[in-house]
Design a protein around this nucleic acid. Structure first.
Length: 527
DNA sequence: AGGAATGAAAA
DNA sequence: TTTTCATTCCT
C-alpha cells in the first residue's frame, strides 16, 4: 500500500487520526486485507467495485480533508446548527455540478440548546452503527407507495389538512427513528433529529440516493392523491424581534375556508399548528373516518438491492476482545469513547456495573435482547442481509479492521469497503460477536453471558448516568434481561419462533448474570 | 408551544 | 436570499 492510497482513505495520521500506532496498524492491515467486492453496478446505485476509490470523486475531501477540530467559520460546509459536514459532491442530485456550500451565515447562526461542543461527531452513519440492532426500520418502500385512497384517508384523519410530502431526509429520519432512539438509548427526538442530521451526510451515496428516490416517489404519489395541492407556506408567523405586535400580518382566524375540493384550508392562520388545529375544529362536526392502516415494518428498505456492508470492529472491540460492543458508543477524533446522547466521555477503566440496569423510559427498554442480536443480521442492519461477522468470519477477530480508519475519520468521506451480497455465509459463523466464545486470553475472565450482562449494564451506565431509577422498577437483572422487550418487533419480522436460537452454538453452561445468578433465556418465560 | 434536523418550495 | 413546513414527541 502506498502512502498515497492511504491518504485517499481519510485524514492522515498527523491530523486527527488518533494514536499513530492504530493508524499505522490499520495501514498495515489495509495493505494486506482483502475485502469482498461488489460484482458491478448494475443497479446504478453508485456501488463501485472498489471501495477504496469510491470517494475519489470528492476532490475537496481528497485534497483537503476536513478537520473537525478546527471549527472556524470559514471552513467547509456546515449544517444549520454549525456542525461541519463532508462535501456532498457525491450527492445523487449534484449531477456533476459543483456542490455549493451553504451560504455564509452572515446573520446570526441559530443557537442550539444542544451542547454541540460536548457532542463529538458520529463515527459512522446510522445504517452502520445500528446495523446490529433488530429494532425494525420503517418500510419506506411500502410507505411511499401508499395508495391515493390511503393518502386521502390520512387527510381525512387530519381533518382535511394536506401535509407536505416528506423529503429525503425526513424519510430517512423516519426510517431510522426507532433505531436511532435505540442506539442513543434515549428518547429525545431532538437528539434523534440531531443524530440523524449528522448521520445523513455520512451515509453512502447509494443509501442517500435510495431515499432521494423514495422522496421522488412520495412526491409523485402525493401529487396523484392530491392533484390540487400546492405548498403554501404562511407569509409570516414570526413576529419581528422588536416592537412589532404579535398580530402583525395575522389574518382573521375566521379565514377558514373550503377549498375547491371541499377540503378545509386555514392558510391564513399564523402557524401550521393553528391551521391544523383549525382544520380539526372545522371537521369536529364531521364524522371521523377510522383508519386501520397498518404499514408493515417487516421488510428492509433496501430490499432487492445490493447493499454495502463493511463496518467491522470498533476501537472498543479491538481493545476489548470478546466483549460486547456498546451499541451506543461513538468515538471522537482522538478515539475517545463517548456517549452520543449526552456527549459525555466514557471512562472505560472506572466503569462499574450498576445495581439496577433497568432503563426508565416510556418507550420501553432500548437495549437489544440476545434473541434480537441473534436474529439481527445484515450490513446496514438490514434484516436478511449479510452481517459483517459473516463477511469477515475469517478475519474479523484476528485483525484490526480497516474501518478503524473510518472510525476516526469522522467527517472525512467515510470509507466503506464495498461488499457483494453474493457472499455465501460461512458456516463457521454462528452468532454475533458477544455470543462467540471469547478469545482464549479472556476466557477465564468473562463468559459470553457476563459479556452480555456487561453490555446491558454498560448501555445503562453510559447512556443515562444521571437518570434516577424508579424504585418500583428495580428488579433483578436476571429477570430483566430475560424480558422479551421486542416481542412485537419479532412478530413484525415475520413471526418466526426465535426461542430456539438462544445460545444455540455450543452453549453448554447455564447463563448467569453478573452476580452469578442463572438467567433463563426462554422466550416463553420472558413475557 | 418550542425545538432538532435537511430539503422542497414559495415568497 | 430567506422563510415555511414536512416528521416526531420530549421538555
Amino acid at each position: 500500500m502506498t502512502s498515497a492510497a492511504m491518504v485517499q482513505q481519510g485524514p492522515s495520521a498527523e491530523e486527527d487520526f488518533g494514536p499513530d500506532a492504530i493508524a499505522q496498524h490499520n495501514a498495515a492491515i489495509v495493505s494486506t486485507e482483502k475485502f469482498p467486492e461488489y460484482q458491478d453496478d448494475r443497479k446504478g446505485l453508485g456501488i463501485y467495485p472498489d471501495g477504496y476509490t469510491r470517494y475519489s470523486d470528492s476532490p475537496s475531501y481528497y485534497h483537503n480533508p476536513p478537520t473537525p477540530r478546527s471549527n472556524t467559520a470559514s471552513e467547509g460546509a456546515r449544517t444549520r446548527s454549525g456542525r461541519s459536514t463532508r462535501g456532498r459532491t457525491d450527492s445523487p442530485f449534484d449531477n456533476g455540478r459543483i456542490s455549493k456550500s451553504p451560504a455564509a451565515r452572515t446573520k446570526k447562526d441559530k443557537k442550539s440548546k444542544i451542547d454541540r461542543a460536548k457532542m463529538p461527531k458520529l463515527t459512522a452513519p446510522l445504517s452502520v452503527l445500528t446495523k446490529d440492532l433488530s429494532v425494525p426500520m420503517k418500510d419506506m418502500d411500502e410507505w411511499v407507495h401508499r395508495s391515493a385512497k390511503t393518502r386521502r384517508a390520512e387527510v381525512e384523519k387530519r381533518n382535511g389538512y394536506v401535509t407536505r410530502p416528506m423529503n429525503s431526509f425526513m424519510l430517512y429520519r423516519s426510517c431510522y427513528a426507532e433505531r436511532t432512539k435505540a442506539w442513543c438509548v434515549q428518547n429525545n427526538h431532538q437528539v434523534v433529529s440531531s443524530v440523524s442530521g449528522e448521520s445523513w451526510p455520512m451515509e453512502p451515496t447509494e443509501v442517500r440516493q435510495q431515499f432521494e428516490e423514495w422522496a421522488r416517489l412520495e412526491r409523485e404519489n402525493h401529487a396523484k392523491a392530491h392533484p390540487e395541492y400546492k405548498f403554501s407556506p404562511s407569509k409570516s408567523n414570526k413576529r419581528r424581534k422588536d416592537g412589532l405586535s404579535d398580530d402583525e400580518g395575522e389574518v382573521a382566524a375566521s379565514d377558514l375556508d373550503m377549498d375547491p375540493d371541499g377540503e378545509y384550508r386555514a392558510g391564513g392562520l399564523r402557524s401550521t399548528r393553528a391551521r391544523r388545529a383549525a382544520a380539526q375544529a372545522a371537521a369536529a362536526q364531521a364524522e371521523i373516518v377510522p383508519m386501520n392502516q397498518t404499514y408493515g415494518f417487516d421488510s428492509h428498505p433496501y430490499f432487492g438491492q445490493q447493499v454495502p456492508s463493511g463496518y467491522e470492529q470498533s476501537q472498543y472491540q479491538y481493545q476489548n476482545p470478546g466483549r460486547p460492543l456498546p451499541s451506543n458508543v461513538a468515538y471522537d477524533t482522538n478515539g475517545m469513547m463517548y456517549n452520543p446522547s449526552t456527549g459525555g466521555y466514557i471512562q472505560q477503566t472506572t466503569y462499574q456495573h450498576p445495581q439496577f440496569p433497568y432503563v426508565q423510559d416510556v418507550r420501553g427498554v432500548r437495549v437489544p435482547t440476545p434473541q434480537q442480536q441473534q436474529q439481527s443480521v445484515g450490513g446496514y442492519g438490514l434484516p436478511g442481509g449479510i452481517s459483517a461477522e459473516e463477511l469477515f468470519a475469517s478475519t474479523s477477530r484476528t485483525s484490526t479492521p480497516v474501518m478503524q480508519q473510518y472510525q476516526t475519520t469522522t467527517y472525512g468521506q467515510p470509507v466503506y469497503p464495498q461488499y457483494t451480497t453474493s457472499h455465501t455465509p460461512q458456516p463457521s459463523y454462528s452468532g454475533p460477536a458477544y455470543m462467540q466464545p471469547p478469545p482464549q486470553h479472556q476466557q477465564q475472565e468473562m463468559t459470553t453471558q457476563e459479556a452480555y450482562a456487561e453490555h446491558q449494564a454498560y448501555l445503562q451506565a453510559a447512556a443515562r448516568p444521571q437518570t434516577a431509577i424508579d424504585p418500583s422498577l428495580e428488579t433483578d437483572f436476571a429477570k430483566e434481561a430475560a424480558v422479551d422487550h421486542f416481542g412485537e418487533a419479532i412478530g413484525d419480522m415475520g413471526g418466526e419462533d426465535l426461542s430456539g436460537l438462544f445460545f444455540q452454538q455450543g452453549e453448554t453452561t447455564s447463563p448467569v448474570d453478573v452476580n452469578g445468578i442463572p438467567i433463563s433465556w426462554n422466550l416463553g418465560e420472558a413475557m
